[in-house]
């Protein structure tokens, strides 16, 4: 009969309409921003810089090796290396970024900076409500705006943060053991000599190979 197909289709839409009153899964939309979805743990938006401790500028993990700047596909990272050094998490003196800018209007959230960073210093944030009234100035984030504490990272990506914390703790333990051994050797030899920096102080994920740091 002509029209029976249309009636069958209408029955289907009616089923969906009535069904949305009975079954919660029939209602797929939510009323953002009054209601919010919990984000998946792996969600990524834009990168931020991780710091340890309370002082953002002192505890910044970034050593300004500029690997992320080089590898960034759309070239949205801009780093100026510092002239002096500050101690990193194991106490080894390292450079730090004098300037670290990320242009969010260029960034495409690809996560490659996170993957190539050998220092666990840059991670992906989940913040997505970033609209500003100035497209150029306010979307260019500087070091101060990018720095976020490790506790923030632990909160948004607990699994990744646990892996990264364990790696850093292992480094630190290794560096301390080395320092203790050095101190012992120094005491035994009785000759003062400068503290040798440990070559293992930097953990490199095995897939990365040796970092060719431009230093």
């Amino acid at each position: 009969m002509l029209g029976s197909g249309i009636l069958k289709g209408l029955a289907e839409t009616a089923k969906n309409f009535v069904g949305s009153y009975i079954d919660e899964s029939g209602l797929t939309t939510i009323e953002y921003p009054d209601e919010r979805q919990t984000l998946a743990e792996n969600t990524r938006q834009f990168p931020f810089l991780v710091f340890d401790g309370d002082d953002a500028m002192k505890g910044l993990r970034c050593v300004s090796c500029q690997i992320c700047e080089k590898e960034c596909p759309p070239q949205c990272i801009f780093i100026v290396k510092s002239k002096d050094k500050k101690p990193d998490h194991v106490g080894k003196p390292q450079f730090y970024p004098a300037t670290f800018d990320i242009d969010l209007s260029v960034c495409m959230s690809c996560q490659i900076c996170v993957e190539v960073c050998p220092f666990e210093a840059i991670k992906m944030d989940t913040e997505f409500e970033l609209s500003t009234s100035d497209r150029f100035g306010q979307l260019l984030l500087h070091k101060g705006q990018l720095a976020k504490p490790n506790s923030h990272f632990q909160e948004i990506h607990p699994t990744d943060a646990a892996v990264s914390d364990a790696a850093l703790a292992a480094d630190k333990a290794k560096a301390e053991a080395k320092a203790a051994a050095d101190a012992k050797a120094k005491a035994e030899a009785g000759i003062p000599r400068p503290l040798a920096s440990s070559p293992e102080a930097v953990t490199i994920p095995p897939a990365l190979g040796p970092p060719n740091l431009p230093m």
Binding site: G5, I6, K8, G9
Partner: peptide, 8 residues
């Protein structure tokens, strides 16, 4: 069911 037999 919604579409495949729809005459239109």
């Amino acid at each position: 069911a919604l579409l495949n037999t729809n005459e239109i």
